[in-house]
Amino acid sequence: MIQAQALSSDADFLNQVASGVFSGSVHSLFDRTINLHCREKEELFTIACVELDNGPNTLVTDRKRFQNLGVAVDDPVFVRDGALFIGQALALTWQQAKQWECRLPVYPEKDQKLREHVAVIKEYVAAHGKPGGLKKTSSPANVFEAEVSALLGARTSQLYQSLALGRWSEACELAIGLVGLGPGLTPSGDDYLAGLFSVYHLPNAPCCLPYPFFEKLALATRQRTNEISYMMLKKAAVGQVRESIVSLLQAAIEGTVEDVIRSLDKVLSIGSSSGTDLTMGLVSGLMLQLETGGNVCLSKS
């Protein structure tokens, strides 16, 4: 049995295991993460290796990698004697872990700095972003990739226009048309939406979206994408995103250009094209806030 320590964790996850009410099974395994299906919450939770950032439903451990631990899909997961057991292979203690909560920064009263930083992000993504998703590749591997790229371009553009005009019902249908679009584990359409939603949940943001928008989207999403990506979207729909996205938003709002680039590099390193797709959604959201500037503020009620 390998012992590992939690270094930090999403506060709700930490409280859940500390209360002893956490059981389920291993959902999926990767080199740097183990996803657990929690029976009590009917949600996925993630055990992450040391180099990953905090996130919703995520616990970061001191392990460098999870490969060759002897953990397998469907292994039972339970809490006993102050440890979270993952099969017969891994026991996690959490008593020293720092609590993390997703706190999005407040949208600024004066937006000049944000405007400049959005331009920096766009330029940097154009130079350093990973193609293959929202950012077009000059040499798609096959006709499928080319068509995915064309659809992503057309649908994100339509969604942007619809949001700019404040047509939230139409926007919701267009957003649903992006869910599950793309070959990756978190499809590009999902990543774009997660980035976009994070901006709409900034406190004091001039433009907001009504609750039914997210409610309808979350309902429609469940069958349209895989469970891992669904969890990301479900959390983003209530303003919960991973730490690197929060840092990028913070830097864009109140940091320096160097802060922006540093945070952006971390986001761009997520997945294959996921970080780039997330950033492009975030940029769209910020541009909508800057361009419509409160003229299309939809009621939250």
Binding site: N142, V143, V179, G189
Partner: peptide
């Protein structure tokens, strides 16, 4: 890994198109 596998699959002899993707409705 998926991206890398997809690229290599398209280079296999005799393959005109190879797609490796999650089975979502959109895909």
């Amino acid at each position: 890994s998926l991206m890398s596998l997809s690229t290599k699959a398209n280079q296999l002899p005799g393959v005109e198109q190879a797609v490796i993707a999650m089975g979502t409705e959109m895909n």
